[in-house]
Design a protein around this nucleic acid. Sequence first.
DNA 1: ACCTGAACACCGTTCAAGT
DNA 2: ACCTGAACACCGTTCAAGT
Lengths: 187, 187
Amino acid sequence: VPLSRGDWTEEALVVLASDGLAAVAVEPLARRLDATKGSFYWHFANRAELVAATLELWERRATAETIERIEVIADPRERLTALATGAYTRASRGNAYAALLAAASDPPVRALLERVTRTQLEFLERLYLDLDVPADRAPPHARLAYSVYLGISQLRIADPDNEPEGRELLTYLELAVDSIMPPGPAT
Amino acid sequence: VPLSRGDWTEEALVVLASDGLAAVAVEPLARRLDATKGSFYWHFANRAELVAATLELWERRATAETIERIEVIADPRERLTALATGAYTRASRGNAYAALLAAASDPPVRALLERVTRTQLEFLERLYLDLDVPADRAPPHARLAYSVYLGISQLRIADPDNEPEGRELLTYLELAVDSIMPPGPAT
DNA sequence: ACCTGAACACCGTTCAAGT
DNA sequence: ACCTGAACACCGTTCAAGT
């Protein structure tokens, strides 16, 4: 059964998450797929094209996942709770996002990160406006919420052998939710 | 004038911060230093030894800088303020830390990150105890504070062209400080 | 002590040749 | 349409030879 462009891209995304952007290399990927480098160059002009396709795939997945995880929740406060606790849960799986953050010197990666970040910040700004935060305070609230989201993910990636458990984990996530919850009437 | 081991390590740290761990490569480094690869292999057994030396250099610098920036501050609340605002200021310079986070699959890098993270968490736990946070709540508070610190740095790295200014920046940093300040008598 | 320069293995890229 | 296999350039590593 012949390989498709999608087969190469899927495998590249797996490698990106586990070993970083530099590990998205033609020859090792060819070995993983049991093909030759010549096969790769039938589907892609060069490595950069593969990287671009991999970034697009990740972007579509990340966007879709956010929508189905967060946007389906009606109540804005519950959305914030899902966001903070989701940051912790998500970071256990792969770290494509962390890999991308460190490859930020690569122009296509940088462009992707800026797009994603702005989309998330805009989403959060609308959310804080829904929570009756004044218009001039919504952007800073959104920025802090996204910072907390990023930080929770990163901390888990940086030190995966020292994770909180039980009551300590619950308190940590409660504090995280409190830190991004605006003042106002509790539900 | 002959090159020293330190010359290679200093240059490697510059490249690590600007272009990531993969860019810490022998031949490009030799070009930057106007030497040959053979010269490199007089000072180091291999690339791994250079990376190890670079990680050590960064660890010493990061530790020393934290001590002189934070530990000299007597009041715990002011320490927290310095920490949160410092996260924003620091991320503008280089992103060695971000580069290291993404190279976390590399065993020496992972070991380094775990050491640094635990030292910071312990420092923060003592700080919250000084602020009369109950013993069982100090670790979660420390963990959230470090998450906020990491997140602020990462957000600035991920989207450097969309930074807050003026009042928006001030509000953002105020919210960040509030988010990690424990309940208690205000100063 | 410190460095050069040639050598070889590995990965990116090309391309003629196969099915 | 899809792939192989050989070729060549680049970087990691070695090492004999230079000063």
